[in-house]
Simulated scan of single mutants.
Amino acid sequence: MASLVSLVSEFQQFLESLASTQARIAATVAVGMLAIIVAAFILPVGLDRAYRLMSTRLGTSRLADWIRLVGEYVPRTVAEAFVRLVQGLVLAAAGLALLVIWGLVDTAELVLRYLGGSLPVLGRGSLTLVVALLAYVGADQYKQMVVRIGKEATWLTDHQQEIVIRLGQIGILLTAGLVVLTVWEVNLQGLLVGAGFLGIVVGLAARQTLGALIAGFVLMFSRPFEIGDWIEIGEEEGVVTDITIMNTRLENFDGEVVYLPNDRVNEQAIVNRSRRGSLRLRVDVGIDYDSDPEHAKAVALETIKEIDVVADGPPPQIVPKSFGDSAVILEMRFWIDHPTPPRKWNAVERVVTAVKTAFEREGIKIPFPQRELSGRAETNGFQVQESASGSEDVR
């Protein structure tokens, strides 16, 4: 500051020779023209040339890569704002020179003292902008790095990748925020204590929300299911359409969208019908007690093998399951690949239709429900009595 004041004094002594108004007008015109030339022409061209020179002279060094990288991220409006700032400083210096030329030295010294007191604030503001720019560049570069890793790593799903990106970016922004607070000499200890109490209050007030949030992270990384999987959670069944931090969204087979909080999802058994890439289906069919079970098994097995939607491996199986009231129950077991609800219902429909047609062709009867009536010996069993109308009644 003292050096600036002494510089003004020396400049004042130099200009004392400009006693006449004509000389001061000439000096004013000269200073004004010089400021306009420097601010409007020399400064923009010089900064652009300096940037290009640093980018080319440094070649492929790490510093040159950083200069080019920052240049790609800095918007044109920000670069133009920087140029306008420097131009403003040049014009301000010209204005101070004009004050001295016209003998307003006290006013010039007052302006310089004000600017000198503002220099720390301007410096902190400039450093804040630099930290914000570096945080922006770092967050975007971190995202690109995670995306590149995700393309090569099969173990990292899209949702896990999204979580890693968001957590990393939050960490970068928090670090930048702490640096900015340090630059502005904010008491971080008191701030952290206050944040701790606030966290306790928020945690007590939003236990369920935080539980769903934590459960969302668990689901993202444990990966019991992914988008597109056909799952069953408790009484809800459908296809997963979205997984967020707070809830899981299913579309059931009635076309309804079901939102399940992630804490509820973690508390229930999850059946994933798509995880193995194949699904076994079971269909029961009954044959008459007079029919040969082995022959019925062979007919049903050959029929199922000819259906194209049924997978070849594992092979279909026909297992006599139980004795029904009217039939011997055969359980037909078969597999489908890439299971989805439409593929399941299509396979079941074609198996039922084809087996019924084959049984009819082979004379294998699928009986209706039947009841067998018998009378006790001491009551002489059933007796047929002719009624007055000529019909027969069973007694």
Rank of each mutant, 00 (worst) to 15 (best):
M1W: 12
Q12W: 02
E16C: 13
S17T: 15
S20T: 12
A27L: 02
V29L: 15
V31K: 01
D48F: 11
R49S: 08
S61R: 11
R68E: 08
V70R: 00
F82P: 01
V83I: 12
V86Y: 13
G88N: 08
G88V: 01
L89C: 01
A92C: 11
A92H: 06
S118Q: 11
V121Q: 08
G125F: 07
L129V: 09
V130F: 07
V131R: 06
A139Y: 05
A153C: 07
W155Q: 07
H159V: 15
H159C: 12
E162W: 02
V164R: 04
V164D: 07
L173T: 15
V179A: 04
T182F: 03
V183E: 03
W184H: 04
G194A: 01
G194Y: 10
G199V: 10
R207L: 15
T209Y: 14
L210P: 08
G211W: 00
G216P: 08
V218W: 13
M220A: 15
E226H: 13
D229S: 03
E235S: 02
T241L: 06
V258L: 03
P261A: 06
E267M: 05
N272C: 05
R273A: 11
S274R: 00
G277C: 02
L281T: 00
D290M: 09
S291W: 11
P293Q: 05
E294H: 04
A311W: 00
G313F: 15
P316K: 00
V328R: 14
F334G: 02
N346H: 10
N346K: 12
V352D: 09
T353L: 01
F359Y: 01
I364P: 01
P367H: 03
Q370H: 07
E372C: 11
L373M: 07
A377Q: 07
Q383F: 11
A388K: 05
S391R: 14
S391G: 13
